[in-house]
């Protein structure tokens, strides 16, 4: 059981990373971005292209760091893929969402547009890589460390939690201490007030997409390192992501972190009683319960 909770925290930290991006977009740009899961897949596959394609062509060594399952190639690919997906997210906003915003289309139109974008991204991944599951390092034996209490954990998984904590700390410092971060928070509070105070809202929207996309890419790559890559992985993450976002109150970054961890742990613990394939359904049930009991999430005021 303790082992399941530990695995849940690892999985939950990946969900949290995705949910933070989703909640930022939801809170600041105010629509449900159904393409967020597929941005995760895109990040994972861009890293795959770099690791197995470009970097091997460039002759970067393929050796691993100590007990980890990756080396220099992944270390370089990680930030590059984050940048790329941040850029893709901004590009999608420029091509699609910005036009719809300017026409005064409602948030539902934006959400439908993002649903279309999600399918476009996934179809591109399927066209280039096919539907099979892939690995960054196929056929690698992955050893587990034995921790006290009989918990077996792979070094990769410890690193995943560290990377997630590092990224979230950076985001925290950015939001609390920089002018742009403060502008972002003020826009999440009140869009009109922010605009009147002279904040360039379009610039903040771009920044939000950039950060959201980059975090999604990181989450996708970490999942790829932990488990595997599949074009449908992002879509399967979508319900846990939304569950975490709603649980932690829409627009609340720290809430998304807590929500992600809770969803991850409950999903993992549920595998003791249910088939593991039911994980998305478990996240869905949690979400429905929250909507019934506390629709504004744990950090929102009481409903109504």
């Amino acid at each position: 059981m303790i082992e399941l909770i530990v695995y849940g925290l690892v999985h939950g930290s990946i969900i949290a990373l995705g949910a933070i991006g989703l909640t930022l977009v939801f809170g600041i740009i105010r629509f449900a971005n159904f393409a967020h899961g597929d941005l995760m897949s895109a990040g994972a596959y861009i890293a795959l292209f770099l690791v197995t394609g470009l970097f091997s062509w460039l002759g970067i060594p393929d050796s691993n760091f100590g007990p980890l399952s990756f080396g220099w190639r992944m270390l370089f690919a990680f930030p590059i893929s984050m940048l790329c997906v941040g850029f893709v997210a901004i590009l999608l906003d420029r091509i699609l969402y910005q036009r719809l915003r300017r026409k005064g289309s409602g948030s539902v139109m934006l959400a439908i547009s993002s649903l279309g974008a999600a399918f476009i991204i996934r179809m591109l991944l399927l066209i280039f890589w096919g539907a099979d599951s892939l690995f960054y390092k196929p056929g690698l034996l992955r050893h587990a460390l034995e921790l006290p209490l009989g918990i077996k954990i792979r070094p990769d998984q410890i690193l995943i939690v560290i990377v997630v904590l590092l990224l979230i700390t950076l985001l925290h410092l950015f939001l609390q201490n920089t002018k742009l971060g403060k502008a972002m928070r003020s826009m999440a509070d009140n869009m009109e007030l922010a605009r009147i105070s002279g904040i360039d809202t379009e610039r903040i929207i771009m920044l939000t997409w950039g950060i959201g996309g980059a975090l999604a890419a990181a989450a996708g790559m970490l999942y790829g390192i932990d488990v595997l890559l599949n074009p449908y992985m992002g879509w399967n993450f979508l319900i846990p992501l939304f569950a975490a976002t709603i649980l932690g109150t829409i627009g609340n970054v720290y809430g998304a972190l807590v929500g992600g961890l809770v969803i991850g742990v409950v999903q993992q613990v549920s595998t003791a009683f249910l088939l593991p394939t039911y994980k998305p359904a478990v996240a869905f049930i949690i979400m429905i319960l929250i909507l019934l009991i506390r629709p504004k999430g744990i950090f929102g005021g009481s409903s109504k």
């Binding site: 449900a32 539902v108 979508l238 319900i239 359904a281 869905f284 429905i288 909507l291 629709p295």
Partner: peptide, 21 residues
């Protein structure tokens, strides 16, 4: 029951979830 009193996005997410479930 749980979704129609909330914003339109909630219904979308809930119906998506029910379809997958």
């Amino acid at each position: 029951i749980p979704t129609l009193k909330l914003g339109e996005d909630y219904l979308a997410i809930a119906t998506l979830g029910i379809a997958e479930t």
